[in-house]
Design a protein around this nucleic acid. Sequence first.
DNA 1: ATAATGAATATATTATTGATTATTCACTAT
DNA 2: ATAGTGAATAATCAATAATATATTCATTAT
Lengths: 201, 201
Amino acid sequence: MSPAIPNETMDDNRRQIIDAAENRYRNYGYGKTTMAEIAEDVGMSAANLYRYFKNKHEIGSACAQRCMAERIDQLSVIVRKPGLNAHEKLRSYVIENLMYNYQNAGVDQKINELVQIIVNENKDVVYKQVEKEIGLLAEILSQGNSSKEFAIENVLRTARSIQSATIMFNVPTFLGLYPIEQFQEMANGVVDLILTGISKR
Amino acid sequence: MSPAIPNETMDDNRRQIIDAAENRYRNYGYGKTTMAEIAEDVGMSAANLYRYFKNKHEIGSACAQRCMAERIDQLSVIVRKPGLNAHEKLRSYVIENLMYNYQNAGVDQKINELVQIIVNENKDVVYKQVEKEIGLLAEILSQGNSSKEFAIENVLRTARSIQSATIMFNVPTFLGLYPIEQFQEMANGVVDLILTGISKR
DNA sequence: ATAATGAATATATTATTGATTATTCACTAT
DNA sequence: ATAGTGAATAATCAATAATATATTCATTAT
C-alpha cells in the first residue's frame, strides 16, 4: 500500500512541478503549455509527472488554487493591519480586491485564463475560495462588533451578504465593462450602502 | 430620398421579422437560425430582409432589446403595484428579478445565449438596460423617501449602488453556481443589508 | 419610386485530415 | 519496493477542404 503520509520528496517534487507550470502558464498560457515542457523544466520525463499528478488538469488546478490562496493571504494583511478601524478595513478590503482584480484582468491575464478554465470544471474551487473570503469579512465584522462600531447579530450571515453584494468587484467578467475610476466610485457607493443602509433611523 | 418617418408597413414588417426570429431563436438558438428561415417564416425572400434590417446581427439585437424591454415592463409592475411599501417593493424587485433570471437561465437558455452574443459586441445595450434598472430602483427609493421609510439624500447614487450590490441576482453567469433556495437566501440577506446597514445606530 | 426577387459573391461554419500532445504501460535502475 | 524511462496508444488541436449561409446587386413587378 502507499504511505498514509506522502514523504518530503513527494511534496517537494509536486511544488517544483507547480512552480515550473506556473512559469510556463504566465508566459504562454495554460493551453500552450505541454506536459513535455513542464517535465523538461523540472528535469524529468513527461511520463513521470503522472506519479505526482493525475493529469494535466490537476496541475493547472493546483496552480490556480495556490494563486488563489496567495490572494487570500494578501487580503488577510488588510484585515489584520493595525491602525485601521473596522469601517476603514471593510472599505480597504473591497477596494483592494477591486484593484487587484483589475490589474490582473489586464496585465496578467494568462493566470486569469487558467483560473477561469479550472473554475469552469470544478465549482468546489470557487466554493472554497468564497468561504475563505467570507471568513475574512467575518473577521472584520467581529472586530467592528468588539470596537462597538457595528452591532451585528449574525456575523456569518452578514459576511455572506457582503460577499454577495461586492461580487462585482471580485470577478474579472465585469471588469471590462467600465473604466477603473467608475468601478472605484461604484465600490465606494456599495461600501457606503453596506455601512449605513437606507432605512430611516 | 427615403421618408423621414418610416411608414406603418415598415414598422409592421420589422415587428413580424422580429417575431419570426424570436420564435426560431427560442427553438433552435441564434447560431442555428438562418436568414432564409426567418424570411420563409415571414413570407419573403432572404434578400428582402435587408430592406428592414442592416444584417443578421441587427435582427438579433432588435430581438434581444425587445426581450430586455419586456423584462423592464414586468419589473415596473412591481414598482407601481399598490399596497406595497417601499421596503416590500425593494425586496420584491430583487427576488422577482432573481426568479426571472433563474427561470430563464435554465428553461429558456436559448434566449440567454442570444442576449449574451448581442451584449458581447454592443456594450451600449447593457448600459441602457442598467440605466433603466437604476431608474426603477430610484422610483422605489423616492417612494420610500416620500413615505418617510427612507431618508436618502442622493437617490440616484443610492440606486446605482443597489444595482451594483444586487448584480449577482441579475446576471445568468452566476446562476448555475447554487440551487435557487440558496440564491433566495442570499438575495434576502443582501436586501436586509441594504435596508439596515451594519453601522451601530 | 418602392417592394421584391433570384442569382452571384463574400463570409462563416462544419467536416475531414494530419500533426501534436496527453496518457498509459511494459520495462530498467536504484 | 520506489523512482524513473521510452515507446505505444488515445485524445486533442490546427490546418485545410467542403459546405452552407450572409450579403450584395442587377433586374422585375407593382
